[in-house]
Every structure is written in structure tokens, then in C-alpha cells.
Design a protein around this nucleic acid. Structure first.
Lengths: 230, 230
DNA sequence: AAAAATATAAATCTTGAAATTTCGATCGGA
DNA sequence: TCCGATCGAAATTTCAAGATTTATATTTTT
């Protein structure tokens, strides 16, 4: 339990607790109870919760308060859809715009992530390095889009990523870590550095498709043949 | 000036005023001044503004209050990018899932919009029917994605659309109305009903590309050849 | 006269309490 | 026993005032 008094700190702490599964999904979040942990007033907590509800991490109903977003495979599916869409598009844009600096950041982020994931694979345990792994996984995917040239796209992706992680964490025992990730991340980086847009799209899709609903329709690669973007 | 007391009403009214250009872009929004119009407390307005800032319609800086989002061609460009991305993807998904009911709603929405836009074309004036035109334009584009099967996608699009409109309204004299719209909307509907995904994507892009930055790189249609979606 | 420093005014943020609404349990009737 | 109504407790929302920060105007100094 923290004891900081700044509103931004409270926001960050609650956000962190939400995306690391420290609340039971449908659990009620009463300002009056959370108040104590931060040594502040009810309304301050209320303000934070209100903003977190706009971010999609907490549910809110008029006159009946806040709840930790409950988990559903439906929502998880939709978040995965959106992640694929944004990550594919953002990565492709970065591949076109990004120069040496971007490549350097991408390989660096991948190297860091790869190192941590190797450790996890050896020990078989995620918990001991959970926070550092989460940070590295985020940094890798964020870096992939980082040179897309659109702040809006990056912020939208950040929001979707948070919600995605919140869902995953409550469902998967391993907080969303899979041994296959190591190889999949590698293949994404390879395609990105090779500037093979179609291949990169495909590998991003493969990487995330595990979180899609089984029966959902899937784009045949060729189906998008002549779709114009921007 | 309204006099309603419900918080949701205040939110809706302020949102409406923001996306119809009733505030000068960088203008300061002081809770103490807005308070009077709604006959409520400062904090109630503050809460609403906080939520509108999460929606991207108002700017917010810690300890220095709220401002109407200022307009920039950069932001407008990024919003257009995102609109194209979401609208293309959502339309394609709707085309696959949507049945007769969707087709009916789409043609109905288009018919309504078409009727209003014809009127505007005759009189040459948007203002007299501004609100009804805005509603119809929104309904048309919303209906296009309405059967995509993803609430997340629809809500994300709604948010982007609002911000897009806010930007457009402050820049274009005609609130974003162009005579070409009539034909462009028609062509989109035609492609959608024909279930020609590539063509529909292309026409959505053409419809919105007017709001992109001139020098921006554009996807060659073939460049997306084998990109997998979901 | 320009720049820095101070004092004053204004606006923002936090707080605790009042007013309103919802939730849960008990009671009465079918 | 089951269903609906009523009452009390708890939670949520609104409010107005106090505390803190930022902005503006004035004075002082170089």
C-alpha cells in the first residue's frame, strides 16, 4: 500500500493494480475503501476512477459506482482484433519511416525482452520477474509502432494494450507468458528489419491469434489484395 | 443555454457544443463560468470536463485547467488516418456478417443523408439544417460499421469521429460539407452492397483522403497484397 | 528603461459534509 | 412457501468552503 498524495500517482498505481490482476474481475471499487491506502479524500479517488473508466479499465454505471472490468472471452477477442489492426498498421508505417535509430531501438527492446523471457523459460516461473517482464513486453510492442508518425495511433494502441493485458492477466495463469513468444517476437523483428510488410503483418497476426475466439472468421491473406490504406 | 441538472445532460450538451465549433479552439474552459449555464456546482462541471478530456475533445493540464482542443492540420491528418483504418475494417467486417437487415439500415441511412445533402446543394447553405445534417452524416458512417460485431470498434470509431468533426468544424467554412459527398457516399454504398471489399476500401479512402496532409505517403493498393488481418 | 522580485488577484485542487439514490433485510399478505 | 412492500443502512453524487498553485500587476533594482 502506497502513501503518496499526488493525483497522477494514484492514477498510475490503480492502473498498475488493474492491469496486473490485483482486483477480482467484477469486484466493486469503493472510493471510501480505496481512500485509506492513498491518504486522500473520497472525491480524489472518484476522479481517478472516473478517468480509468474512460480508459476502459473500470466499469461505471450511473448511481451504482465503479467495478473492476469483468473478463469475457468476447471482450478479449475484440481487443485482440484491435491490437492486430493497430499493430499491423503501425508497424508497417514505422517500417517505411523508421531509419537506423528505429532499428536500433527495436533490436535493443527485443534483446532485453528476449533475455528476460529466456530466464523465464529456464526457471519456468513468471512471478519473480513479472514487473520487469511486463515492462519489456510493452516496450517491445510499443517500439514496433514508435515511428509510425501518429501520436494518436500510439496513444490508442497504448489504451488497447492496457485493456488487453487486463483481460489476459485474469484469464491466463501465466499472466500471458508463453514459451512460443520468444520465437514469435524474433520472427516479427526479422520481417520488420527486412522491410517485408506483408510478412510482418502475417507474423503479428500469428503472434496474437492465440487470443482470438476459435470460431471467428479469418481474413484470407489474399482477400485484402487491393485494399487502399492511406 | 440549457438549465438541466443531470450530469449526463451536461456532458452531452458540452460535447455537442465542442463538436459544433461553439468554442474557439484554444479557448479556456473555466468551470466557474460554465457553472452558471447549467445551474450546478463547479465540481460537477469539472467532472464532465475531465471525462471530455479523456475523450480527446478538451485539453487538460495539471494545475492549469481545461481548454477546448486546439486545431492543427497534423492532428486532423492523424484522425483521418485512423478514421480510414477503422472505417475500412469495420465496413468489410459488416459486409461479411451483415444480412438483409444491415443492408436495409444502410440504404435507409444513405437515403436520409442523400435527401438532406440534396437540399443543401440546392440552397447552398448548410447552417439551416446543420444539426440534422450532422446527425445524418454520423448515422450513415456509423451504420456502415454497425454490423462489424465489435462494440469496441464501434466505440473507438465514435470517439475518433467526434474528434475528427471537432477539427473539421473549426477549419472548414462549411462545417465539412462538400458537394462531392453525395456521389462519394453513393459509391461507397454500391460497393458495400456488392460485397466488393477491395473496392469499398478504396472508396472509403477516396471519400476521406481530402482531409489528409498533401505530402503524406499513400499506400499503393497492391502494397497490402498479402497482409493478414484476422 | 529593462529585468527581477514582490504582492495581489484569480483559478484550480482537495476536502468533509449534506442530499440523493441504491441495496438488503425484515415483515405482511397471498 | 413465495412474492411484493416497507424500512434502515450503506453507497454514490452533489455541494460550498478552505488550501494550494498559477497568473497578473506593481514595485524595486540594476
Amino acid at each position: 500500500m502506497k502513501d503518496k498524495t499526488g493525483t497522477p500517482d494514484i492514477y498510475e498505481d490503480l492502473r498498475h493494480r488493474l492491469i496486473t490482476g490485483q482486483f477480482v474481475p467484477g469486484q466493486k471499487l469503493k472510493p471510501d475503501e480505496l481512500r485509506g491506502a492513498y491518504n486522500c479524500s473520497i472525491n480524489t479517488v472518484r476522479e481517478v476512477l472516473l478517468r480509468l473508466s474512460s480508459a476502459g479499465l473500470v466499469g461505471f454505471q450511473d448511481q451504482r459506482g465503479f467495478r473492476a472490468r469483468d473478463s469475457s472471452v468476447r471482450h478479449q477477442h475484440e481487443l485482440t482484433q484491435m491490437r492486430i489492426l493497430l499493430e499491423q498498421e503501425g508497424a508497417v508505417l514505422s517500417m517505411r519511416r523508421g531509419g537506423l535509430a528505429w532499428e536500433a531501438r527495436l533490436t535493443a527492446a527485443h534483446h532485453k525482452l528476449s533475455h528476460i523471457e529466456s530466464q523465464i523459460a529456464l526457471s519456468g516461473q513468471v512471478e519473480p520477474v513479472l514487473d520487469v517482464w511486463c515492462a519489456a513486453e510493452w516496450e517491445f510492442h510499443e517500439t514496433l509502432l514508435s515511428d509510425c508518425g501518429s501520436d494518436l495511433m500510439r496513444r490508442t494502441f497504448a489504451s488497447i494494450y492496457d485493456q488487453f493485458r487486463q483481460q489476459l492477466v485474469t484469464r491466463e495463469r501465466n499472466y500471458g507468458y508463453f514459451p512460443e513468444n520468444v520465437a514469435e517476437h524474433q520472427r516479427i523483428v526479422d520481417a520488420a528489419l527486412a522491410r517485408d510488410e506483408a510478412l510482418c503483418r502475417q507474423r503479428i497476426h500469428e503472434h496474437l491469434s492465440r487470443n482470438l475466439l476459435p470460431g471467428a472468421e479469418t481474413d484470407a491473406p489474399a482477400a485484402r489484395a487491393s485494399g487502399a490504406a492511406w
